Simulated assay, not measured.
Amino acid sequence: AAQQMQGDPSKSLPNHRGIREIETLTDALQQLIRRLLHTEKEKLTFERLSQRDSLTGLANRNGLAQYIEQLPIGTHSIYLCLDLDGFKAVNDTYGHALGDLLLIEVGQRLKQLLPPGGFVARLGGDEFIIVLTHQSVVEAQHLGEQWIAHVSMPYHLEEQTVHIGMSIGLAEQIAGESLEQVMHHADLALYRSKQDGKGCMSVH
């Protein structure tokens, strides 16, 4: 009877095989969690990098689209499309490495005059765009003239003195216009600036 009360001793002993299986599953779960966290970190890093121009550090087209999406509905926006004058000649004369340094410096000069709330991006090549949300058209024109003058000052790169200019096309976004529409209008104004002799600004 005493033996019956004590029961089978083997049943009270830990099942070592079961413990090993639990440990194995726990390790696998921890490894899975670490991989998921690492993957999420890589995803966030990729998303951040995918919105930045790898050369200048400015926003790229994806970054511009992201910026526009987060603007409150009805925000008054003015778009300035900027294109460098004489950049191809710099590349042809001094090489692409110096051309890249020039683009980096141009990006810095654009940022130096960027007012609070302003946004600047590099769309590719020697084309940039600036979005202003707190300025009137007249104020934006004044800023555009300052950018032209600032970007047109000489650059001292790798013992070379380089001169370029800049043309601007300005368009005000009206209610109901999409990003593509206002960008098209700014592009048309930029084309007119190029046709008018470069180094100037046109308003759509």
Rank of each mutant, 00 (worst) to 15 (best):
Q173R: 15
L103F: 00
A175T: 12
T75E: 01
M201G: 05
K11N: 12
T39Q: 15
E40N: 15
L13I: 10
P72S: 11
T26G: 09
R122A: 07
I19Q: 10
K88N: 01
F46T: 09
R34S: 08
I130L: 14
V106H: 02
E145Y: 06
D85Y: 06
A171R: 04
V151E: 06
R20V: 08
G99P: 07
A59G: 02
D100H: 06
E159G: 10
I174W: 12
G144E: 04
D126Q: 03
D92G: 04
A1M: 15
G169Q: 09
E139N: 00
I148M: 02
L36S: 12
L37K: 11
T26F: 13
L179M: 15
G169K: 06
L114G: 00
R61Y: 07
V138H: 08
L103W: 05
E180R: 15
R52D: 04
S136E: 05
Y94V: 08
D8Y: 07
L13F: 09
I33G: 06
N15Y: 10
K111W: 06
E158D: 14
I104D: 02
L29S: 12
I78W: 00
T56H: 02
Q160A: 11
V131L: 03
G7D: 07
T45F: 13
F46D: 14
I78A: 05
G124K: 06
N91L: 09
G124Y: 07
L102Y: 05
I73G: 11
L110E: 01
L49N: 07
H38L: 13
L98I: 15
V90H: 03
I104M: 07
P115G: 06
L44V: 14
T75A: 05
L29D: 10
G63S: 01
S10L: 15
E145K: 07
L110H: 05
S50I: 07
Q51P: 09
K111F: 06
H16Q: 14
I19P: 08
A1V: 12
T39I: 14
S54E: 12
Q195V: 12
E69P: 04
L13R: 11
S202Q: 14
H96M: 12
I104W: 05
S152C: 07
H38S: 09
R48Y: 09
L114I: 01
D53W: 02
Y67R: 02
H163S: 11
S136Y: 00
S12Q: 11
C200A: 09
H185Y: 09
G124L: 06
D187S: 09
L13E: 10
P9N: 04
L82H: 01
R17G: 14
K194D: 03
I130T: 04
P116L: 04
Q4E: 15
T161V: 14
E127H: 08
